[in-house]
Amino acid sequence: MPYKYEQPHLPGWKDMMIGGAIPGLRPNQRNPYFTGGTAKHYRPVINFDKCIKCSLCWEYCPDSVFDVTPDGYFNPALAYCKGCGICAEVCPVPDTIIMVDEMEFEDGYGKFIDEYRYWKENREAYRKWFESLLPKAQIISVRKR
């Protein structure tokens, strides 16, 4: 996949505040100092063609991973996603959010694409890619695999 998030910068021990304290975060602000997304086993992939913009994934995500796009979709910032699968569990539309094993991705474990941007720029390629992942999914919205 061509669109990659920039890898988070991990500071050295001399750069860190003593004891690992960090500047305070605003309410709902994700922690830029510790993204945590490298720890996940399953990655959510969104079928934006079927999304009804209900906002349940955005509301339920325990790590506030979903960013609202200008046209009202919800794009996961995968660097922060821990792979819990709650978004796929609460999504009310069949085959719209799926959880896929990280090892299935050619972009490699721990590297993250921008799903929404990929979909906007090439819907046909994105649809084919999504369909190739669907049989491998561990959790599929509405129906359990």
């Binding site: 690992g20 304290a21 945590g36 490298t38 720890a39």
Partner: peptide, 20 residues
């Protein structure tokens, strides 16, 4: 002085903090 103490940092930071 708004800071957060003892955040969750897991394997990304713990080695560095022990070294500190």
């Amino acid at each position: 002085n708004v800071i957060s103490v003892a955040p969750q940092v897991n394997e990304d930071w713990v080695t560095e903090l022990r070294k500190q």
